[in-house]
């Protein structure tokens, strides 16, 4: 019986195995938390972890897409923050304006992502430089145009329907969670069942070989960066729906957290390998660790150190490069 399971395990592809590892880590973190602090396993606490993990999950979805082709998106913090500011300043808290404001905020994200993609794919600017520059550009524009978030319309809140949705939820289930399930389905279908998905992995494994076999490498790259911008904007919209008002620096924690979630989720940082289901587990793991440490009243310095150590341990477990020898 046991041998049967082991044999089955051997037949799973390495990609699926990494996803399993990611879930095993997430499960053990949650379990450990529940053992050490009984309150941690309560539905209210789990629900809070899931909602917070959803925000990391949205951002990590975009980050994962560009990491799959060996890129990186450092513009996430201010795409997110910019979209959040656009949403409240154009909607002015009025429900009628919500559809336009939503379209505009997502449009800002798509435009920033598109520009990133064009810079990387057509102008040959390294991804780190292009997205770092874009982050600065958006930070300057957000700060400058909103006069450091002191403009007349900057005090407005997100429209009530959006806030009801994200604070209240739909039939008791938090809306952020429902959107996350939708995003997870979309990402999984897009990457595993469509030709676009096959192309993404082909470019990630070897872009030259993909190009020679007729994949429009540049088009794929631009599409992925655009999607990353849209996901970051989506996260900004939901954060503002959840919190009511944007703040400056809202997106800053998500830069490194998105990269960590992607890698803890078993996606190779070199590109070409990984599934979004793993990234879901990665986001859960990271948020569960932080939430647990906060619940235990571990001071900030301790949280930072343990967070770093946990990432290192996970990397040692399944994030190592192949040996040269």
């Amino acid at each position: 019986m046991n041998g049967e399971i082991l044999r089955r395990f051997d037949t799973i592809t390495p990609g699926a195995r990494r996803v399993l590892y990611a879930y095993a880590v997430a499960a053990s973190v949650l379990l450990l938390g529940a053992v050490l602090n009984p309150g941690f396993a309560s539905w209210t606490s789990l629900r809070a972890v899931l909602v917070v993990a959803a925000f990391t999950g949205f951002v990590a979805a975009g980050q994962m897409l560009v990491v799959l082709v060996g890129g990186i998106d450092l513009s996430i913090p201010w795409v997110l923050n910019g979209a959040a500011i656009v949403l409240t300043t154009t909607s002015l808290g009025q429900s009628v304006r919500l559809p336009y404001a939503l379209a505009l905020a997502l449009g800002v994200g798509a435009l920033a992502g598109f520009a990133n993609g064009m810079g990387v794919a057509w102008l040959g600017v390294p991804a780190v430089v292009m997205t770092l520059g874009m982050n600065g550009v958006l930070q300057g524009l957000s700060l400058g145009l909103s006069k450091g978030l002191t403009c007349a319309s900057c005090g407005s809140y997100a429209p009530q329907p959006l806030r009801d949705l994200f604070v209240g939820g739909v039939a008791g289930v938090p809306a952020a969670l429902l959107v996350w399930i939708g995003v997870a389905l979309l990402m999984t279908v897009l990457l595993t069942l469509t030709t676009f998905g096959r192309r993404v992995y082909a470019v990630g494994v070897n872009s030259r070989a993909a190009f020679l076999s007729g994949v429009g490498v540049r088009g794929v790259t631009v599409a992925l960066y655009t999607l990353s911008g849209v996901f970051a904007a989506l996260a900004g919209i939901m954060l503002v729906g959840y919190g009511g008002q944007p703040s400056l620096g809202l997106g800053d924690p998500y830069l490194f957290e998105s990269i960590a979630a992607v890698v803890v989720g078993g996606v190779s940082i070199l590109g070409g390998r990984g599934h979004y289901l793993g990234v879901v587990a990665g986001s859960l793991t990271l948020v569960a660790v932080t939430t647990f440490l906060q619940a235990q009243r571990v001071p900030e310095y301790g949280r930072l150190m343990i967070y770093g150590l946990v990432i290192l341990v996970i990397l040692f477990a399944y994030g190592r490069d192949k040996s040269h020898d």
Partner: peptide, 29 residues
């Protein structure tokens, strides 16, 4: 960690960034 542990530099230093920042806060809150 990078050379013996064979973990990509960006990931290694991402993790140690958190650890060193934590140590800094511990030394000078």
């Amino acid at each position: 960690i990078v050379s013996a542990g064979r973990i990509a530099p960006i990931l290694t230093t991402l993790a140690t960034l958190s650890i060193f920042t934590g140590l800094a806060l511990w030394v000078l809150p």
